[in-house]
Computed example of a mutant assay.
Amino acid sequence: MTKFNHANLTVTYIAPITPFRPLEGRKYTLSHSDTTGKLFLTVGPEYSYSTTTVAKDEVFAEWVQSMGEYSLYGRVHVSSGEFDEQQSGVRFMIFKKEMDLALTAIVYGDQVFYKSFPWLLDAPIYIQFDSIYPEFKKVLYYGTPRQYLASLRGQKVT
């Protein structure tokens, strides 16, 4: 995994979403620059789809409620047929390898939000890998926001 550097993260909020509210409808789009290594997090009421990225390398996530409990549910695009099985496998492995970095950026970039909703620090994070190839079409558990913030601070987050 690439090491997270907060100086390489740019966060943009799109109204009516603010660093503090609301929870409902809060969507995250994380993109990156392969040349600079910079990460770009957009937090808004809609996903921010790139018009320049052909490979569809963004990570999309949102807070979803099921049976009274919230989880951060994300998704990434592995392949819908534009990549063959071998290329899709490479994309799947890269997404898996870099997902901790992506989730660290999302959680760190929106960390003020957790002051308004501290109980979400312990919400589960799930990532859906979308692919036409069954071996890459999965939903994986990635811990909690608290774990990502704690790993950055080297201590427990309160």
Rank of each mutant, 00 (worst) to 15 (best):
G154E: 08
T2V: 10
Q147A: 15
L72C: 06
K115H: 11
M67E: 15
A7N: 13
W119M: 04
G109D: 07
Y28E: 05
R75K: 14
E69Y: 04
I127A: 02
E58A: 15
A123L: 03
D130G: 01
G154R: 07
Y13F: 15
L39A: 05
F113Y: 12
G89P: 10
A55E: 15
L39C: 08
R146N: 03
R26T: 03
S71I: 00
T35C: 04
R91I: 07
R91T: 12
Q111F: 03
V64P: 01
L120P: 07
Y108N: 11
K115D: 12
S80F: 13
S131I: 07
V43M: 06
Q128C: 06
T2I: 11
P22V: 10
S88Y: 04
P145G: 04
K3A: 13
K156N: 10
Q155H: 08
L149F: 05
L41R: 05
S33K: 03
S80Q: 12
K115V: 07
S131M: 10
I127T: 10
A105D: 02
Y114A: 01
S33A: 09
G74N: 03
T42S: 11
P145T: 08
T158Y: 09
A150E: 14
K137T: 02
S131W: 03
Q155N: 09
V54P: 00
R75T: 11
T35K: 14
V112S: 10
S50T: 08
S116F: 01
F83L: 15
E135M: 13
F129A: 05
D100H: 14
P22E: 07
L120R: 08
K56E: 13
Y114F: 15
D34F: 12
L30Q: 02
K137C: 12
V90R: 11
A7D: 12
S88C: 09
I125D: 03
K97M: 04
P22I: 09
I127W: 01
T2R: 14
K97E: 13
Y133H: 09
A123T: 08
